[in-house]
Amino acid sequence: MKSLGSIRRSFAPWADPAAKPYILFENVTKKFGDFVAVDDLSLSLFEREFFALLGASGCGKSTLLRMLAGFEEPTSGRILLDGQDLRGIPPYRRPVNMMFQSYALFPHMTVEQNIAFGLKQDGMPKPEIAERVGAMLKLVKLEPFAKRKPHQLSGGQRQRVALARSLAKRPKVLLLDEPLGALDKKLREETQFELMDLQQELGLTFVVVTHDQEEAMTMADRIAIMDKGKVKQVATPAEIYEAPNSRFVADFVGSVNLFEGQVSKASNGAMQIASGDLVLKARNGADADTGNTVWFAIRPEKIRVTPQKPEGGDANAMEGEIYDIAYLGDMTIYNVRLDDGRIIKASTMNSARVNENILSWHDRAWISFNSDAGVVLTA
């Protein structure tokens, strides 16, 4: 059985029609004056899911998270958690906890005092607090730093304190608002895997808001792409990347080349697309009739760049000139200007230290890709 991309784990309750959503947004709208932040949005999340809300600033993702936390109330619609309508329930009575981008640690308190704060507010007995704090310190590997204050910690350590404090009350759902935004790139990448492992170990439901595509693709079981208060697509990372449902999603996630054209022939899922002087052969065809305008979306890594014209009947091939080159160590990115002026981006992995057929600026080159390497879009 073929699948799109790698499978992170065999957890997929959304594929079961009988599965009951754990968190349900039903026709939720949120307005701030005349501005519509969330627009008639419906969304289902499942227990133990690591779910990501991904979108540009102002798309409504943080507002959605704040409504789930109880910091905002929907203008209309309702939000259910484990079957309970959350309307009117204050944040401190909801079985959720939120970890903010700023971490919001108390500077005058030690690490263990910060973690214990919410437990003390709830009136938990001191022996139980000590036991829970110890367990949290062990979980986030901060036992040697228990007596330190936030200013004595690195950014990654402060992030772990905030995470431990959020988990100490054992919420049913942990909400994370840009949780790794304050970390440097290398530490952010390490922490992504730690969060994934921690979420699966605890068996909690995580909902993360981020504008970082790589972060969402790495951590989440599913991703909701948002724009202007609406959800554009909800799917697994591989499905979002390999099978976007629109030009917006294809262009938003990763890098993509889009060929616009008209369907000149269509039969049994295969079609030909007339795009300027080019005729593209495409599979993964959408529902489109002859004469319809469509877009063929193909990722740069699916395109081959060669000095000679490739052989093979199934390949789309076109000639151009190397316009730009970016060497990134693990890969090289080529911008190839076709003879009709279009610039196509292709990327190749540098799997060998020495390349005998190296291409340089202004060289003539061929780009090619198979008919099933991309996806045909109608919107």
Rank of each mutant, 00 (worst) to 15 (best):
E319P: 00
T290N: 03
A220T: 12
L180D: 09
V256L: 11
R283S: 04
I225E: 02
G33L: 05
L64H: 04
E128I: 01
S154Y: 09
P150G: 08
L258S: 05
P127N: 14
D289R: 12
K265M: 11
N284D: 07
N284A: 02
I129V: 14
G134S: 02
V140K: 06
N292Q: 09
M318W: 08
S6C: 05
G181H: 07
I23Q: 05
L53C: 07
K141S: 11
G70N: 10
H362R: 14
I303S: 01
E301M: 10
Q262N: 09
V161W: 03
A365E: 03
Q308I: 04
V28A: 02
R222Q: 13
A315W: 12
R9M: 13
E301L: 09
A270Q: 06
L175F: 15
N370W: 08
M124A: 02
T332G: 08
R170S: 15
W295I: 00
A250Y: 10
S347H: 02
A282K: 05
E242R: 07
M196E: 12
Q308N: 12
A274K: 15
R8M: 13
S246V: 06
R87H: 10
L183D: 14
G33A: 07
A216L: 12
M1A: 15
S246F: 11
L81Q: 10
P91V: 03
S42R: 07
F35Q: 03
P17F: 10
I223W: 03
P144F: 14
A379R: 09
Q272N: 14
Q192N: 13
M331P: 00
V161S: 07
E143C: 00
G374M: 02
R93N: 14
D177F: 15
L204W: 01
Y327E: 13
L24R: 13
E49K: 09
S371T: 01
V279L: 13
I23N: 06
A146E: 03
D16P: 00
R8V: 10
R353T: 13
R222K: 14
I367E: 05
L65A: 05
V96I: 06
V294K: 04
E319Y: 02
D221H: 14
T378A: 08
L377H: 00
P300R: 01
A250C: 09
N97P: 00
M226Y: 14
L202K: 13
D197W: 08
G5S: 08
P95I: 01
Y334Q: 05
K186M: 11
G58A: 10
P107Y: 11
A286N: 01
